[in-house]
Amino acid sequence: MFGVEWLRARTDPRGLLEHARNGVPLLSEGYTTDDNARALLYVARLPEGGRPLDLARTYLGFLLFMQKEDGRFRNGLSANGRFEDEGEAEDPSGRALLALSAAAHLPEELGEAARHALRLSVERVVGFTSLRGRAYALLGLLAGAAEGGKDFLEAAHHLGRGLLAAFRETDPDWPFPDALTYANHRPVEALYAYALAFRDREALRLARRALAFLDSLYFLGGLFDPVGNRFMHKGEAKPLFDQQPLEAKAAASCYLRFGEREKAEFAFLWFHGRNRLSAPLVDPLGPMDGLTPHGPNRNRGAEALLSYLLAWQDLVQGVFPRVEEGMALGRVYALGG
């Protein structure tokens, strides 16, 4: 399985390394919770016969090491084992929660360790205020609701209401609660998942309105053409470069959840040359880090690699979590049962 081999080439006994140049991992540049959470999510969702439990153990062990006693996750770990932050950013904790919800179904001690870390993190994520941190955590809570029960549903409902409030306060001509920065489809996807799970019609309407807005910026004719990594505020011209693999992944997952498979496939084909420069961003060494005005950025970090693998996985296996898995519980909660 090519994805597993790419991961093995970038993983040491501590975890998945953050950066690589032309397929060669840069040992001096350390590790992140973000990348190891993405890697755990990917391997935990592979079919049982092809699931590399040794890699799952490594990535899960990394997350357990990075988790603080209060449930938050530090993000950066240097090559010499020094923590580079104390878990102030919410995105890494949200991504870790999502990955742990997938890993909770791993066999025996791996699943139990994931469930323990998951329970420890639930109280903390309720207080999240960042747009993307809420989105990742909400999807993770919906994925873990079947096992976590009422506590997970209460936390998911709280985060969903926070997302809804943020989208409710937007302008009709900019129906997104923030500047367009990175993974812009992820909050829209999470709001839509919340709407379905808790039967919230307002959230459904606002999620659809926000997705139509992103459509107007992310598609150029028949091409997926993401907002470049220069941030876009209301009234500004769209940045054309540097386009990031994370945008293609987030869009592919979002469109699949909305049932728009053709658009999801367009987003995935961005990696394979259906982009504004007709430049393939994947070769036998793996996915590249982005699209610059001069062509591909030939560095090959973990974020690019997992963006490609997770987008492919969603196209083949369906998005995670499957909304219908949490819908029944969410409906019971919403109705006061």
Rank of each mutant, 00 (worst) to 15 (best):
G3Y: 02
P13T: 15
R14M: 14
L17K: 03
H19Q: 15
R21S: 14
V24D: 13
Y31G: 04
T33G: 08
A37K: 03
A39K: 05
L40H: 07
L41V: 09
R45L: 15
L46W: 00
D54C: 09
L55P: 04
L63C: 05
L63G: 02
M66F: 01
D70H: 11
G71L: 07
F73H: 08
L77V: 04
L77Q: 01
R82T: 14
D91T: 01
G94P: 08
R95G: 06
A99R: 00
L110M: 07
G111M: 07
E112V: 01
L118D: 03
L118S: 06
L118E: 01
R119T: 11
E123V: 01
E123S: 14
V125T: 04
V126Q: 13
G127C: 11
S130D: 11
L131W: 04
A135G: 10
Y136N: 07
A137I: 08
L138H: 07
G140L: 05
G144N: 05
G144Q: 09
G149W: 06
K150S: 13
H157G: 09
R161N: 11
L163P: 01
L164F: 04
D171I: 08
P175C: 06
R201G: 15
R201I: 08
L206H: 02
L211S: 04
F224N: 00
G228D: 03
G228I: 03
R230M: 13
M232C: 12
P245V: 07
S253V: 15
C254H: 05
K263D: 10
F266D: 08
G273D: 09
L281R: 04
D283Y: 07
D289C: 12
P296H: 10
R300V: 10
Y308G: 05
L310A: 03
R322F: 02
E324W: 11
V332W: 12
L335M: 04
